[in-house]
């Protein structure tokens, strides 16, 4: 399979209330292509910061993130944005859909930003898979939480990134919807052969992963 993502000695500190918070403290991780990796840890353990650094949403104090042989922090802002839209897909806890765009538009947004052609059949296929084809003209305010998260998943899938980063995607959902969304996500990742890195503090979800990385105080304490 090979390594798709390598985190090398990553450091990110924050100043807070006169002190320093070591959000990510000399962390190194290697993630295999095509695997579902769960990053778990208590609240404030630094897992979200690590995910954001992996996705290039934030810049570290030191260390490297290498995705498909590219050191992402050696790229300038615009190049990093281009890299992100080609190689990385994000799924956030609070969905982060564009409220003024309908379901279809939210899904094709990354393609538009990348000037890629839209295959209507492909988008319809993905929307059909997540069960929202009949709601493609709906605006986000007319969707339930689970439906919104499924739109976020479709948005990631359609751009076929090398790696999908999910930040507690089911954190805002009830348990029934959580299972549905996770089922959809896992199935789609499997169908499209993508790599998924997910943050969660939910033991049940972590158990669904191929690899589980445990973070404490900004450091990797175990990887299994």
């Amino acid at each position: 399979m090979g390594i798709i993502l390598e985190v090398r000695d990553l450091v990110k500190y924050y100043k807070e209330g006169g002190g320093v918070v070591k959000a990510v403290d000399h962390t190194s991780v290697r993630i295999e292509r095509g695997k579902f990796t769960a990053i778990v840890g208590r609240s404030g353990s630094g897992k979200s910061t690590l995910l954001h650094l992996i996705g290039g949403l934030d810049r570290p104090d030191s260390g490297k993130v290498i995705i498909e042989n590219s050191d992402i922090f050696s790229l300038k802002d615009d190049k990093l944005a281009q890299f992100r839209r080609k190689k990385i897909g994000f799924i956030f806890q609070d969905y982060n859909l564009v409220p003024s765009l309908n379901v279809w538009e939210n899904v094709v947004l990354p393609l538009g930003l990348d000037n890629r052609k839209v295959s209507s059949a492909e988008v319809e296929n993905i929307l059909d898979k997540i069960g929202l084809l009949d709601k493609k003209n709906r605006l986000p305010n007319a969707l339930s939480g689970g439906q919104k998260q499924r739109v976020a998943i479709a948005r990631v899938l359609v751009s076929k990134p090398a790696i999908i980063l999910a930040d507690e995607p089911t954190g805002n959902l009830d348990s029934q919807t959580e299972l549905e969304v996770m089922g959809t996500l896992k199935q789609c990742v499997a169908d499209f052969g993508q790599t998924l890195v997910m943050i969660t503090h939910d033991e049940n979800i972590a158990q669904m992963a191929d690899v589980v990385i445990v973070i404490e105080d900004g450091k990797v304490v175990s990887q299994s």
Partner: peptide
């Protein structure tokens, strides 16, 4: 915030 409208459906663009 940002939608500025109460519509629930909008016919949008095929690509953006």
């Amino acid at each position: 915030a940002g939608t500025g409208c109460r519509k629930s459906v909008r016919k949008g663009y095929e690509y953006l």
